[in-house]
Design a protein around this nucleic acid. Structure first.
Lengths: 206, 206, 206, 206
DNA sequence: TATGAATGAGATTTCATTCAT
DNA sequence: AATGAATGAAATCTCATTCAT
């Protein structure tokens, strides 16, 4: 989406200043939601963090949900991009290194955007936001994994379920690492994920 | 907790009718929270579902959060009981059968109580409820798993992290199964979980 | 009012047990009002203090105000009795001693009943209770004082106003003494009151 | 306090319109509290009297008590100013005239602000408001009186108690005059007060 | 005569959104 | 393009009073 294409609520095409203000509000929204959670985040907090005002907020977003969906769309794009770059994983040193590198990038993304991802999951579940980008992105990720990871078929397992199992494991482990409920270094985290992936994929030792 | 020991907000000991009303409110609370989420659930909805009134609600609970914590304590007890019964898993048919049976019971519990567990996780994270039973129960589960599953040490992996990874996988897979984002039979679910556990624990093929 | 004449809300004549319960509620009401003030005093507190119940409360009093008015009537009677015993004050040692003794009894009464008297004043003023016994009792006291104290007429002063001035001084000084805003012994209190009365009445030195 | 320094609940600096609204709410609050008393005064009444709304009310005050404390601070300032201007009273025509003039100003202040003063006294006593400005102001007044009135020491009276006695007399007499429980002209009121003060201070005839 | 459960009107407070400048 | 004042619907919680036993 090019900057020129972004418009305010009423469809006006925005000038430079407008873009900056809009971006400030988005960033403030992300920050406030990360800190306080989606529900506790009040428009008041967001405009204060953005050093803006209520009136201005509604100049750029039609509602609080609107801003949130915008954030989700942003993050969904980033996730899709990352998913597209998931390497085909083979049972070689190179294959493992590629997987580890990819999981490292995922961890980076989660560190930066995890709060949005979490809020998004919760919100979609409770039906508080309209779209269902979440399911789509998740389905995308699971589908790609199921394909690229070449999960063995011989055991009669559903590769979709297995892929989902592994995906959620990755997501949750990053979640706990970011919420400080898990004290672990990035390397320890990746060690465990790669080991379990490896065992699941190639039947290797843990 | 014997019935005689349960009391209203002000410490009164309740009679039979009181107990019934209180139980009705708890059940209604669980149902409404399951359906709408903790935030969207209004006291209004709960008392309506319980065919009771605001005044009565506050006779038994000091706030919506109070009722919720009560529910959480209930569920936490059930989870702890189940955790205590986690078998030691060995690489035998019997060991796998024991694990599968336990995961089946976990799935049952999650089916019945998952909505509370989810709301609880979210609420604790955003600091909306006082206690931290969630972390304690999770730590309990992870610790028990790390011990009983005899995760291999030779790979230099942190057993705590590995146990957490497996636990979250179990929890999330049940989550998606219950929220209908995952269409899978109970058997398909257990197949995948047992397979990944087996691979992680004993280095076997998926 | 004889015990036999006291009845419950519905006009029933009460038996011994009923009388005791009613008395317990009255005493509890006085205590709670003294401690927490009229507004903060909830029926809940009163019945708890009386080790009774809501249902029982409304068996004896038609409302919270009803109990309060009963208390006021009681106190009003005590005040009237005391007022009736106000001695004629002459400018002699005996006259002063009589005045001092009477003020001492007033202080006793205020110590015991001041909280009711205060609540009563406030409530009547804000129109929260129906009756106007307060004004009547005050008028009675002022009238009696104006007569018995033989306030000098020659200065052209209105004896009613002067009597009111002195009465309020007595009431407020006791008030501050009882609310601990004034740290004074009973003797210091009486010294000041007698001195100012004396000066006002007989033009003597303070 | 300059207008620029006054802010809403959240510390925003207000513009002209905001100041007007805030002032309207304060005035309405004073009026409603005067009429109905602190307890009976509902936020609803206040915003209606101010032709404003609930939301606006809480934009400027964090609660009903907050508004009330603001009023009290205002009045406390006025009382302190008046107290500071209490003249040293000597036993001369000029001294009496000065005292009378001061009592006249006190009566004016009480006429305008008495309702606040009364509510304030009651509220502080029952612990419904946080501050204890009342005791401080009263102590101030009593201390100043005790000093400036040169109450005779020879009688062995505590000047603090005597000053308090006189102060309360002034306050209460104004109170009864304003609540229409005392029908008296301003002059009659002042006559009595000056006379009793004079008698107390200089041992003169009433 | 006593009890305690149940009620619901009414009060306070919050906050997304709109309005006026 | 920006601001901040104003709004009011909706949610929580209290408590005097009534009901059922």
């Amino acid at each position: 989406m090019s900057a020129a294409g972004v418009a305010g609520t009423d469809g006006r095409v925005l000038r430079a200043r407008g873009h900056r203000t809009r971006a400030r509000l988005l960033a403030a929204g992300a920050e406030v939601i990360a800190t306080q959670g989606l529900h506790a985040a009040r428009v008041d907090d967001i405009v204060e963090a953005a050093r803006s005002s209520h009136g201005t907020f509604y100049l750029y977003f039609s509602s609080k949900e609107d801003l949130f969906e915008e954030l989700v769309t942003e993050v969904a794009g980033e996730v899709r991009t990352l998913v597209a770059e998931l390497p085909t994983v083979s049972d070689t040193a190179k294959g493992r290194a590629g997987l580890r590198a990819w999981l490292d990038r995922f961890a980076d993304l989660y560190e930066a955007r995890g709060s949005i991802i979490r809020a998004w999951t919760e919100a979609e579940l409770s039906g508080e936001v309209a779209g269902h980008q979440g399911e789509a992105v998740l389905g995308d990720l699971v589908g790609t994994l199921a394909t690229r990871l070449r999960l063995p078929r011989r055991a009669g397992l559903d590769p979709g379920i297995a892929a989902l199992a592994l995906v959620t494991m990755v997501e949750r482990l990053n979640y706990y690492a970011n919420t400080r409920q898990l004290q672990a270094t990035r390397d320890e985290l990746l060690d465990v994920l790669v080991a379990i992936f490896g065992a699941a994929l190639f039947g290797r030792d843990l």
